[in-house]
Design a protein around this nucleic acid. Structure first.
Lengths: 199, 199
DNA sequence: CCTTGAAACTTACGATGTAAATTTATTTCG
DNA sequence: CGAAATAAATTTACATCGTAAGTTTCAAGG
C-alpha cells in the first residue's frame, strides 16, 4: 500500500501555501501571481498544489476566508476589551478601520466584489458572516441600554455601511492618509446622535 | 501618400470598441474578455485595436472613465430636477443608488480598487472627480440654508461614504434585493438628524 | 500609373492555467 | 526480505492569452 497523506499533512500544506499566497497577493495582486510561482515558493513542482486545491480560484477563496477570520478575530478582541455598549461599539469601529488600513491588501481582497461565485465556497461565506455578526452585534446591547431606538439589523447595517464606505474612500486615495479614522469617528458620532431617542 | 486616419475616424473606432467592451465586460467581467474577442466584435483582426489603444489596461481605463461620466451625468440630472437643498440631496442619493443597481457591472468596474495605476490615466481621474463633485456639492447649499452645521467637505464625505457602503453591501449580496435603497434612505435621514443644528 | 507609407493583417513567442501521462516512493503482503 | 500496488509528485503537453515583429494592402500625391 502506498503512502497516504494524513489530515495534518494536508492541513499543513494548505496553510503553508495560503501563507505564501497571502504574501504574494499582497505584494502584486492575485492576477499577477501564477500557480508556478506559488509552487516554486514552497519548493514543489507546478502541479503539486492541485493535489491540495481545486484550482487557483480555490486558493483565492481560502486566502479570503483567512482574511475574514483574522478580521473577525480583531473585531472580537476589540469589542471584548471594552465595557458598555457605547464603548464596545467605538472599540469595534476603531478596530475595523485599523485592520483595514494595516492590511489594505487583505481588506481589498476580502471585499473585492468582482471575485467569482462566492457561493461555491461555503467556508468563505461562513467567515464573512462571522465578521458581519461581530460588526453589528453590539447594536443589540446599545438598544437594550436605551442608547438608540429602531431595528437592530437595520441599524447594524447602517454602521457597517458607514465604516466600510469610509475605509474605501481612503483606500481609493480620496482621503488624506489616516482620514478614514476621523471620518469613521464622525460618522459614528453623527449616526448615534441621529438615532438618539427623542428627549 | 497613404491614407491617413482622421481624428473622427480614431474617435469613432475608440467609441465603438468601448461600447463593445462595456457590454462584454458587463456580461462576463474584464478578465474573461480577450483582446481577440473585442477585435472580432468589431470585425477587425486581433491586432487592430492596438492602433487605437495602448493595451488592454488602456481600454479598461477608457471604459471606467465612460462609466464615471455617465454616472456624473445621472447625478447631475437628478440634482437639477429638484428644488431646495434637502430635495436635491435626496434626489442625488436616490439617483446614486439607482445607477449603481441598474449598472452593477459598470459600478463595480468604476470602484474596483484593485485596478492598476489609476494615476496613469488622467481622463479617468478627471471623470472620477466630476462624479465626486456632484455627489458632495449640494452639501454647501444645505449648509447655506441652515439645515446643518459643520465642514462641507467632511460632511460631503460622510454622505458619500454612507451611500457607497450601502450599495456595496447590496452588490456583495449581503442585503435583500433593493435593500440598498432603503438603507441609503435611512442613512441619509439619520445623518441629517444627527447634523441638525441644536434647537 | 507608379511610388509611398500608414493602416491592417498575419505570424510568432513566451507565459499562463491545468489535463494527461509518467515517474517516484512508501506501505503491506507473500 | 523482495515485489506488487498505488497515492503522491513530477513531467510533458496543449489551448489560450497579451502583444512584439514582420508582412501585405491600398488610397493619396507626383
Amino acid at each position: 500500500m502506498p503512502r497516504v497523506l494524513s489530515e495534518t499533512d494536508v492541513a499543513d500544506f494548505r496553510e503553508r501555501l495560503c501563507e505564501a499566497a497571502e504574501r504574494l497577493f499582497a505584494e502584486r495582486g492575485p492576477d499577477a501571481v501564477t500557480m508556478r510561482q506559488l509552487a516554486a515558493e514552497l519548493g514543489v513542482s507546478p502541479m503539486t498544489p492541485y493535489r491540495y486545491f481545486e484550482d487557483k480560484d480555490d486558493i483565492l477563496a481560502a486566502v479570503r476566508a483567512n482574511g475574514f477570520n483574522r478580521f473577525a478575530e480583531a473585531l472580537e478582541t476589540a469589542r471584548d476589551s471594552a465595557v458598555g455598549a457605547r464603548n464596545r461599539g467605538k472599540a469595534a469601529g476603531e478596530a475595523y478601520v485599523t485592520f483595514a488600513l494595516e492590511n489594505p491588501h487583505s481588506y481589498k481582497l476580502m471585499f473585492d466584489f468582482n471575485q467569482p461565485h462566492v457561493e461555491k465556497y461555503p467556508e468563505l461565506v461562513v467567515a464573512g458572516q462571522r465578521a458581519q455578526k461581530t460588526m453589528t452585534g453590539y447594536v443589540e446591547d446599545a438598544l437594550a441600554e436605551g442608547l438608540m431606538t429602531g431595528d437592530p439589523g437595520q441599524i447594524g447595517m447602517m454602521f457597517w455601511a458607514a465604516v466600510h464606505g469610509a475605509v474605501i474612500l481612503e483606500l481609493a486615495g480620496m482621503l488624506p492618509p489616516g482620514g478614514a479614522r476621523a471620518l469613521q469617528g464622525q460618522l459614528d458620532a453623527t449616526l448615534m446622535r441621529g438615532l438618539r431617542p427623542e428627549a
